[in-house]
Design a protein around this nucleic acid. Structure first.
Lengths: 256, 256
DNA sequence: TATTGGATGTCGCAC
DNA sequence: GTGCGACGTCCAATA
């Protein structure tokens, strides 16, 4: 199998293995005691400690400690890995441009270095996303409310594309903002922007107020806003009420 | 050294090593061919392929392919790892509750398994954060505008705590929203909420409009909103202008 | 425990 | 490349 592995290598040995692994396009993991410094969008320094360094052939670099889902330091894909021995330490440096960023890992000790050629299987299928919620509504519009008719998804507006645009039983335009999970006040602001943009575009008064005579069916041409999400926070509910928007409780997938 | 490592172990061997590593609280990395399934906040399935599984003693689990900064599947800290041999495969399962989530990795082949006891060095020092930007302004308020006086940070309001509250040269209240990097329209919405909350709280008219006689210094008690960020998008600028808010271009750290 | 907003967020897509 | 919004976002601070 295409795995190479060295235990307690000298820095020189580790360097050879790393360079070979970079050449082959391997996925690399390095256990060892190291310091880490980063400079780019921000800047950081991390003192000596035992960590796991993961180097990917696409340029990504991850420094993991024993805690957390997030790497304590990292470099995004598209970076370039280089290794060298400097001042008695193994130095692994990953750099990229635009923005200029550099991650430097200096190992005083390398405990274990492994490299594997990785093939196959990038076909992740995910269920329960916002897209699933959209699909569910398009298939069963009555879940929003009786008589609701979706007209367009990702409908453009001056405030950006709205998730679903449609009309209610009265023919009033409805803007729907979808969220796959419980939402806070930010989602209401987002919905408000779309509704406002559409009101300006259609030249109608908000919240059912009539025009000045020209528009005889003002109520029918007002724009409604509806937030579809499994649930909302209290603050979000307040802001929804202020704006006169509605909320429909709906999960991305039918409850089991 | 406190690193154990096995190359091409049998499932049985791998299982022993894993259980020992869990017992010791080691940081574990496993190279191998596997399938991955997840069920929890969403659900996903990933077909067979070569991947790197990282298991942390705090319960975090990460499945990495050869691409991307993000793991293709994961489990957050606080989960519990268990391993077993089932149907001729090594099954590693990580579960947590609230929300209920399960990650299952089934290895048909384990190429390399390493485990290391991790100690020391969680003292990351980071520069260039929003907090640095706040500090910079508090030390040199004139960077916002001549005569600006910060009065309070994280000042509470009905819309949540505002980054900096202060007064300008005229004594007019100023709400400052800080962003460490270029911002879009969402930041303007956030600023607007704070300004509105403060206007309600102080009972003043917005945008310098006077009261009806009771308040003789209406202009002085209006509330201004200022967005401090390195730069803003066009759309954000539009929304700032609509609201009558200002923008000050400022980096979290002085330019080199 | 739930809520809120920051993050070197990352990532994908449209322009 | 920038802009914009989703994400199983993660994460810490806070109520």
């Amino acid at each position: 199998m295409t795995v190479t592995s060295v235990h307690d290598p000298s820095h020189r040995e580790a360097l050879w293995e790393l360079e070979d692994a970079f050449e082959r396009g391997d996925l690399v993991s390095v256990f060892g005691r190291c310091t880490v410094s980063y400079e780019g969008r921000a800047a950081s320094d991390l003192g000596a400690g035992d960590r796991l360094l993961v180097l990917k052939p696409d340029g990504a670099a991850l420094v993991h400690t024993d805690e957390g889902r997030q790497p304590v330091n990292w470099q995004p894909p598209g970076s370039e890995h280089r290794a060298a021995v400097r001042e008695g330490r193994l130095r692994v440096r990953s750099t990229r441009t635009s923005p200029d960023e550099t991650l430097t890992v200096r190992f005083s000790d390398v405990h274990q270095l492994s490299a594997m050629a990785v093939t196959g299987g990038r076909d992740l299928t995910l269920h329960g996303s916002e897209e699933d919620l959209r699909t569910r509504i398009l298939e069963r519009p009555e879940l929003v409310e009786p008589g609701f008719e979706p007209r367009e998804t990702e409908r453009p507006s001056s405030a950006g594309p709205m998730d679903i645009f449609g009309v209610d039983a009265d023919g009033t335009p409805v803007v729907i903002e979808l969220k796959r999970r419980r939402v806070g006040p930010d989602a209401v602001g987002q919905l408000a922007r779309y509704v406002r943009a559409l009101r300006e575009e259609l030249g109608v008064e908000g919240e059912g107020k009539g025009g000045e005579g020209e528009e005889t069916e003002a109520a029918a041409t007002a724009v409604r806003g509806v937030l579809v999400a499994p649930s909302i926070t209290d603050r979000a509910a307040e802001r929804l009420a202020e704006r006169g928007f509605g909320h429909v409780a709906l999960d991305p997938t039918p409850e089991t």
